[in-house]
């Protein structure tokens, strides 16, 4: 399966949906900071992987898929749920990539500081994409 960009998908989102994600992202970042300030970085660090953004994305994906099917005169509830499930399966692989990001930061930050975030981001994309490719190949070989 070839990865590609579908820019027309941007038109499916309403302006307030972008605003909701901006506010949710901002609030989650502030809450993670407050928890770290109050209870220390051991607890605060956990919340850097809190799935708040995923919840919003999966809900929007389900809604958009349902609306797309409704426009074509088809009941879209099932397709909407399937689309959200596909998003969740991708996010599960992305979570492994996120663990690679965190591992890089944990081990490299004392020596390399901010550069560890760059190395971690590269590790995240490499591990996530490799995991996704492997998952695709396993699915198609069955």
């Amino acid at each position: 399966m070839i990865v590609h960009a579908k820019f027309s998908a941007l038109g499916e989102s309403r302006w307030y949906e972008y605003l909701v994600r901006f506010v949710l992202g901002g609030l989650t970042t502030v809450v993670a900071g407050v928890i770290a300030d109050l209870y220390g970085p051991q607890l605060g660090g956990l919340f850097l992987a809190f799935p708040a953004i995923f919840c919003a994305s999966a809900t929007l994906i389900e809604k958009h898929e349902r609306q797309r099917k409704k426009k074509r005169g088809v009941a879209g509830q099932r397709r909407g749920t399937d689309a959200a499930a596909l998003d969740a399966s991708g996010a599960a692989l992305g979570g492994i990539g996120l663990a690679a990001f965190a591992l890089a930061v944990w081990l490299l930050a004392p020596e390399y500081g901010l550069a560890s975030l760059v190395i971690g981001s590269i590790a995240w994309i490499l591990v996530s994409v490799t995991g996704w490719r492997l998952h695709q190949e396993i699915r198609h070989s069955r």
Partner: peptide
């Protein structure tokens, strides 16, 4: 914007 959806899902767990 990215497709397929399972690939786009990776960004639901972005850092």
């Amino acid at each position: 914007v990215l497709r397929p959806k399972s690939f786009a899902g990776l960004f639901g767990a972005a850092p």
